[in-house]
Design a protein around this nucleic acid. Sequence first.
DNA 1: AATGAATGAGCCTTCATTCAT
DNA 2: GATGAATGAAGGCTCATTCAT
Lengths: 213, 213, 213, 213
Amino acid sequence: MAIRKDGVDRYNVLLKAALEVFAEKGYRNTTVAEICNRAKSNVAAVNYHFGSKDKLYLAVWKMAFEEALKVYPLNGGLPDDSSAEQRLRAVVYSLVHRFLDDGRLGRAGQILLREMAESTEAVQQILSDIISPLQRKVGQIIKELLGENASQQQVAFCQLSLINQCIALGFRRSKGKLPPVLGEGKLTAETIDELVEHITLFSLAGIAAVRNK
Amino acid sequence: MAIRKDGVDRYNVLLKAALEVFAEKGYRNTTVAEICNRAKSNVAAVNYHFGSKDKLYLAVWKMAFEEALKVYPLNGGLPDDSSAEQRLRAVVYSLVHRFLDDGRLGRAGQILLREMAESTEAVQQILSDIISPLQRKVGQIIKELLGENASQQQVAFCQLSLINQCIALGFRRSKGKLPPVLGEGKLTAETIDELVEHITLFSLAGIAAVRNK
Amino acid sequence: MAIRKDGVDRYNVLLKAALEVFAEKGYRNTTVAEICNRAKSNVAAVNYHFGSKDKLYLAVWKMAFEEALKVYPLNGGLPDDSSAEQRLRAVVYSLVHRFLDDGRLGRAGQILLREMAESTEAVQQILSDIISPLQRKVGQIIKELLGENASQQQVAFCQLSLINQCIALGFRRSKGKLPPVLGEGKLTAETIDELVEHITLFSLAGIAAVRNK
Amino acid sequence: MAIRKDGVDRYNVLLKAALEVFAEKGYRNTTVAEICNRAKSNVAAVNYHFGSKDKLYLAVWKMAFEEALKVYPLNGGLPDDSSAEQRLRAVVYSLVHRFLDDGRLGRAGQILLREMAESTEAVQQILSDIISPLQRKVGQIIKELLGENASQQQVAFCQLSLINQCIALGFRRSKGKLPPVLGEGKLTAETIDELVEHITLFSLAGIAAVRNK
DNA sequence: AATGAATGAGCCTTCATTCAT
DNA sequence: GATGAATGAAGGCTCATTCAT
C-alpha cells in the first residue's frame, strides 16, 4: 500500500470520506462520485481501491466498528469480578458514547441505526456480530441483578429497556426530534457523563422493580 | 379523489401500496414502478394522481400518522384528571402499539424510524408535528411524577428514557437484532400487553429513583 | 405493441438496427448508443423495449434465424421422396443463399459466423438449434449417397466438406480475402446460382470418390 | 527484447500470454489486465513493452503467422517439380494442421478465423499477406488440374471449395457445432492425417468433375 | 380520466493508458 | 528498466418523469 506523491494515503482518505457520506445520506443516497470528490480523487478511485461501492460500504463498517470496539469496549476495562452494577454502568457508558460521539465513532452509530431500520442484505452478518455479544453481555448482567427466579421474558424485557434507551440516542442527530437538552449542538462531556449516570440509575431502579414485582 | 366506474379507488390503492413499499424499503430504495405494480396501475399513475414521487411520500406520511393518532391516541381515551401513572401507561400503550402493530400502523412506525435515522428534508415538519405533542405530553407527566424540584435536565433525561424504550421497538422487524422473545415472528396481543406493563413499571421505578436521588 | 406518433414501430426499428450493427461489429464492439442512434431513439430505448443489450442480442438471433428458416428452408420445398442429389442441391442452395444474401439474411450469416468463432455463452443453445438439424439432414443425405458400407468417419468427413464449403462463404464480406470472382461488390443472382451448381457438382463427385475408395 | 536477471523474458512471456487470450476471447473481449495476469506481470507491462494494446495485437499476429509459415509451409517441403496432386495434398496438409493444431499454431488459426469474421482494420494488411500467397499457390495448382480450357470462374470456385473446406475446420473449437468425430476433445494425429487424405481425395474428385463437365 | 410509449439525467463500473517512483 | 497507483473516457443500466393518445 505504497503512498504516492503528495503523501496522501488514498485508501484511508476514501474510507474516511465514505464513512462521512454514508452516515449522512445512507447507502442508496450516497453516490460514489461524491465520496471521490470529498476524497479529492477520481470517480474510478473507489473501484480501484475497493472493487465496488458495496465492498467499500462493507469496509467502512468493518473499520468503524472495530474502532468502536477498541475505543469504547463493552466492559470498559473493568476487572471481571466487578459488581453487576459497575458492569452495567460500563456497558451504558460504552453504548452512550458510541452513539453520541461527534467524531468517527458517532458516524458509525448513525450507520448502525440506519442499518437497523433498513437492513441491507450484505451487512446482516456484521450487524449480528455487533449485536450478539452486546445482548449476551447485557443478558448476563441483568440475570445477575434479577436473581435466579427471573423468567426468560423478564430478562428479555429488561434487556430491551436498557439497550433501547441507549441506541435510540443516535436519533438526536436529526434536529428537532429530541428534547432540548439533547437536541441542540454539541454535547459537553459533562452532559454525556450525567446521561450515563442517569440511564444507569434509571435502569437499575427499573430492574429492581421488576425483581420485586 | 374520484372513484372510477369499476369501483376501484386508484388514489387510495396507490396510497396503500406506497405505504407498504416505502415502509419495507425506504424512500430511495422504492421505485415508482414497484408501487404502481403493486397497485396494479400504470407507471404514470403516481405522477398523474400525486404529481411526483415526493408528493406521494408526503401523502403517505399524512395518512399514516393521522390514522395512528386516531387508532392509538396518546391519552388512550383516559379522562384528563386521571393519575399520572395511568396517563403514563396510556402513552406507553399508544407508542408500543404504534411500533409493534403488524398492520398499516406498524408500517407507519417503520417509516417513522427510518426518517429519524435519515431525515429526508421534506418530512422534517411532519416529523416535528408528531414528536412535539408527544414530548409535551410525556414531559408533563414526568414533571408531575418527579415533583416540582426536578431540574429541566432530569425531566429531559427521563423523557428520553421513556420514549427511547418505545420507539426503538420498531427495530424488531430486522431479524436477529433483538432478544428472542421479541425477535421472532408475530407477537401475541398478550405479549404486547405484558411489554406495556413492563415498560410502565420499569419507567415508574426509574423516575422514582431519579426523584429520590 | 401500440405505435406512437410518427407511425414508427420502435421495437422493430430497433431490432433491425441492432441486426445491422451486431453483424458489422460484433457483440462487444457494438454500443447500445449506436443502435439507438441508428434507430433514431433514445439511449434508454433498448432497455425499455428489450430489457438489456443481451436480451436484444438474443432477440436479433431469434428473428434473424427464424426468417432464414422461412426464406431459405433446408429442403427447398422439395417433396420428401426427391432423389438424394436433388436434396443435396437444395441444402447447398439454402446455405449458399443464407450466407451470400445481401440483405437481412446475410447479416444473420455474418452473426452466425462470428458466433462460431467466438461463442457467446448465451447463444450456445440457439446455435445448436440451428446447426443440429442441418447436420442431421446433411448426414442423412450423405449416408444415402455413400451407401450402407460407409463408416461413421466417412460420413462425418463428407459432412464437413460439404458444410464448410458453404459456411465459409460468409467470409467474403471481408475484403481481399477471397478470389476476385467472389470478393468484389455485389454478387449477381446468376453467379450465386452457378456457385450452387458448382458446390453441388464438386461435392457429389467428392462423395462418389469416397464411396469408391 | 532485453532479458532480466531472473532469466524471464517478459516481452515473450507477454506475447505468448497475449496469443492465448486473444485466441480464446478475441480482441475486444480481451483485457490488458488479463494478459498481464497470465504473464505474471504488472498492468503497465503491456504499454511499457509494446506501447499499446493494438500494437501488442499486431505483434501477436506477426509472431503467430511467421511461426505457422515455418512449421507448416504451404509446399510441405516438396520439390517444385512435384505433381499437382502431391502439391495439393501438401497445401491441404499445411492448412488442416494450422487450424487443428492444439498448441500455439492452433491459436493462430483461431485468431485468423476471428479476423475473417470481424476484420479489425489494423490487420487487413497482414491478413492479405497471408491469404494472397495461399490463393496464388492454390490457384496455380488448380489451373494445372483443370487444364488450359478452364474459365476463371471455374478456377475461383474450385479454390473456394478447397480453401473453405480447410479453414472452416477452425470452428471445431466451438463445442457442439461440428459432427462428433471432429467435435469432441483432442484429435489424434492419425485422425488429422485421415482428414488430410479425405479432403485431398474429395477435392481432386471435385476438380476432376468440374474439368469434365 | 388514464395509460402505454418514450426520454434524459444520473449512476456504477470497466479498462486502456499515464504518472511518479 | 519496471511497477503500483491513479485517471478519464465511455459504456450499460435504472428510474422518475413527460408525451401523445
